[in-house]
């Protein structure tokens, strides 16, 4: 199943991605899809995914709804977009 991931600018930079969006063939569950993304990013994912799991402060958004770590047990539909956002801090 193809899932499209969109990363905010700063997060894409930290992940070492040249483009802020990437499409992957992944399983349909959100946790497994996130693991596929972490694998795809490779070494650059280390600070973003300590221990192989996405850092809890990274925001995961599906269909405009934020999914905190305790609320990620959802099934994705083919072609769905998962948006990942790094919380911004500055002023």
């Amino acid at each position: 199943m193809t899932v499209r991931f969109e990363l905010t600018t700063r997060l894409a930079e930290l992940a070492g991605l040249a483009e802020p969006s990437i499409e992957l063939d992944t399983p349909s569950s959100l946790p497994e899809a996130l693991r596929a993304l972490i694998t795809r990013i490779g070494d650059a994912a280390a600070p973003l995914a300590p221990g192989g799991s996405l850092h809890p402060s990274i925001l995961v958004v599906v269909d405009g709804l934020a999914h905190p770590p305790a609320h990620r047990d959802v099934t994705l539909r083919p072609g769905q977009t998962v948006r990942l956002m790094l919380p911004v801090a500055g002023g």
């Binding site: 930290l14 600070p47 402060s57 990274i58 925001l59 905190p68 790094l86 919380p87 801090a89 500055g90």
Partner: peptide, 19 residues
């Protein structure tokens, strides 16, 4: 929902933020 619902703990990333 509140800020702590969204970000339960401060993120580890710190930087001299560009602004």
């Amino acid at each position: 929902g509140c800020l702590r619902c969204l970000v339960p703990e401060p993120p580890p990333w710190r930087a001299d933020f560009p602004v």
